[in-house]
Nucleic acid binder design. Sequence first.
DNA 1: CTGGCTGCAAATTATTTGCATAATC
DNA 2: GATTATGCAAATAATTTGCAGCCAG
Lengths: 149, 149
Amino acid sequence: MPPNEIDTVLDQIRAHGGRITTARRLVIGVLLDTHEHLSAEAITDIIRTEHPEVHLTTVYRTLESLAAIGIVAHTHLGHGAAVYHLGEIHQHLACEVCGALRDVPVSVLDDLRATLERDHSFVLHVGHFALLGRCAEHAADEVTSTSDG
Amino acid sequence: MPPNEIDTVLDQIRAHGGRITTARRLVIGVLLDTHEHLSAEAITDIIRTEHPEVHLTTVYRTLESLAAIGIVAHTHLGHGAAVYHLGEIHQHLACEVCGALRDVPVSVLDDLRATLERDHSFVLHVGHFALLGRCAEHAADEVTSTSDG
DNA sequence: CTGGCTGCAAATTATTTGCATAATC
DNA sequence: GATTATGCAAATAATTTGCAGCCAG
């Protein structure tokens, strides 16, 4: 984790009156390091290999705090735990067969947003739920609903 | 519940080797009657006003059976219980503020589907997650995330 | 030194599973 | 009469809450 990146996040926490603790450093570190989408439990497992004293509850609360500041967001990929990620809101494409996850800019939904607003007076918010379907590799498979979500 | 409608469903259950029981009649009856999107618990509560012996577990198992036949589907509207509905798969628009739910045909997603397939080789499946946002009445409200989902 | 944060236990919510009994075909 | 479905209890998974002590600011 490049010190500059983590310091930026820590500064944001301070700016919002939050305190810098070991647990918070570790959570942010994992998210910066992996740059993947991890569940609270997965984050905790990684932290615990080095710091077994950090509790799942604390990770949840840290993620909650970071979400309140707007630093992290979570998404639902299907049935099962939510996954957390740093940075900009984006849209997720999740393969129902293999679980492959792909991030796409929210702009792919611009047309849909315009349509919904025009035809249904509905203002779309994006990113909270993944879009489910099949990745290229599994597009031709039977429909067997592995992680239907 | 019009007898013809319920009989159609019962016939489909028989055709798949399932048995017709009081609990199943009641679950289907509630879904046909209300024509709304109800959680398993909500369905059970309605049934129990007249038939307190019907158990939540049975309702879950009935819904599972009906889903296997393709008669019901469930959707996630946000955080909280999934909601079940009879009939065609459709897309749901859920208001984060008031919870208002609106059904729209899956065809609103046709353009998005084409875009995702062309640009990301991703085959979109629809209906399992609602699209979240604001209904006309709450489009102008502050973003306070009531039922963010 | 004080209020925010943590650890731990326990509660909650949504759903699933095991098993003996009951009801359907 | 052979299965399938049900009732009830209990397990599971994901997340939240309560509370006393700890620690950052």
